[in-house]
Design a protein around this nucleic acid. Structure first.
Lengths: 211, 211
DNA sequence: CCTGATACCTACTCGTGAGTAAGACTACTG
DNA sequence: CAGTAGTCTTACTCACGAGTAGGTATCAGG
């Protein structure tokens, strides 16, 4: 497609955004190692030295992508959750927000989770950081429940399990895009709140207001 | 370490095993792209042309690794699960077997799950295949329960969610190796069988016989 | 002790991709 | 219409890794 000769002159801030978008796209499709700076620059519509001038090395660029997308996601969840509600309602709104974000930002989720979790070193750190923020959120929700699990450590583990289940269900969802976000969220909600023991007896959890 | 000049002469079958072990090790540590055939040959204690003579190209080698490890794991689970028992006991034994395998084969699990799931194309196929076998197993377990979830599709989804939770909890476990396998398994068992709704009320699930 | 055959090696080719040098175009500012 | 700051390019260097050519050591049977 290399049809254009010289790119339109644009202010740095705008170019940086374009480059970041292109980088997220390419990293999510090919993975960190298989992605090349040449391809990213081509997708971004500029030449390679611009990449290095603005965003530094390949590793720096990737880390920057991860941080940006992680922040976007945590903000989406934070604004979606409804505090001062019953624990189950809080959990429900959080799950809705999470799956809503993933559904509308599949590429972001890929580069954020699928790629970052497999590249060791500095990248995993960013991910771990975001995950632990999410875990603390859920753990707080659990300990706040009246008859909470005995130890604080126990709550943390359960929260980690739930967050892990969410991550992994989102991962699974990538391969089954036909399901709507609400359905996936409700499924996980039922699983973790009611448990199979209740579900096989026909006891299901319902959101407070049917839409 | 290149101290040895020429390797001890060994029959082909033995060398192939050594090479496979080395490949799983290196792939799990570095990932598919970052792993080099040079390093694999060095770890295996032979020279590069032997790799190509015995196991073909890098892609073939990787695919062979995945297939071997997936088979090993499914066999471990199949022999661990106790059929003709109550659903919860069956699930419990399956979880024990699964986490037992992962705990004793961390590198296998890494190359199998973490690496294969991120390299597109032929590799993901092997993984998907193994996962769907696991899902069918759990789905059968659920539909066999007396008052099972309404539709067959519903059971499949829940099974997928559970398998996903297991995968992801195992993933999480890689970063928290201090926890014993039984504890991790029990935690997931409680989460998915009782649900948070019961757990916050103090209702927990107990294995049939305390050891 | 010759003769395959099989295990094994050193030493290359060759493509690809990260990162850079050196300069050209545009636009504002005096 | 300089001069200078910021945008953007072509055209390299250089390292690393996949895959191979061509040869050497060791064993098994005659």
């Amino acid at each position: 497609m290399r049809t254009e000769g010289r790119a339109k002159r644009l202010p740095r801030a705008v170019r940086e955004r374009q480059i970041m978008d292109a980088a997220v796209d390419v990293f999510s499709r090919l993975g960190f190692h298989a992605a090349s700076m040449d391809e990213i620059s081509e997708v971004a519509g500029i030449s390679k030295p611009m990449l290095y001038a603005y965003l530094g090395s390949k590793e720096e660029l990737f880390a920057t992508c991860i941080r940006r997308e992680a922040t976007r996601m945590m903000e989406a969840i934070a604004t979606g959750v409804e505090p001062d509600q019953e624990p189950d309602v809080q959990l429900w709104s959080g799950l809705r927000a999470f799956f809503g974000f993933v559904g509308e930002n599949r590429t972001s989720w890929m580069v954020l989770h699928r790629q970052a979790s497999t590249q060791g070193g500095p990248f995993a750190v960013e991910l771990t950081d975001m995950r632990s923020r999410a875990v603390s959120l859920v753990a707080a929700l659990l300990t706040q429940s009246t008859k909470a699990p005995a130890t604080k450590l126990e709550a943390e583990s359960l929260a980690a399990a739930l967050v892990g289940a969410g991550e992994s269900l989102a991962e699974w969802w990538l391969d089954h895009p036909e399901e709507p976000a609400g359905v996936v969220a409700a499924r996980l909600m039922n699983l973790v709140w009611m448990g199979f023991g209740d579900l096989v007896d026909g006891n299901v959890w319902h959101p407070p207001s049917r839409r």
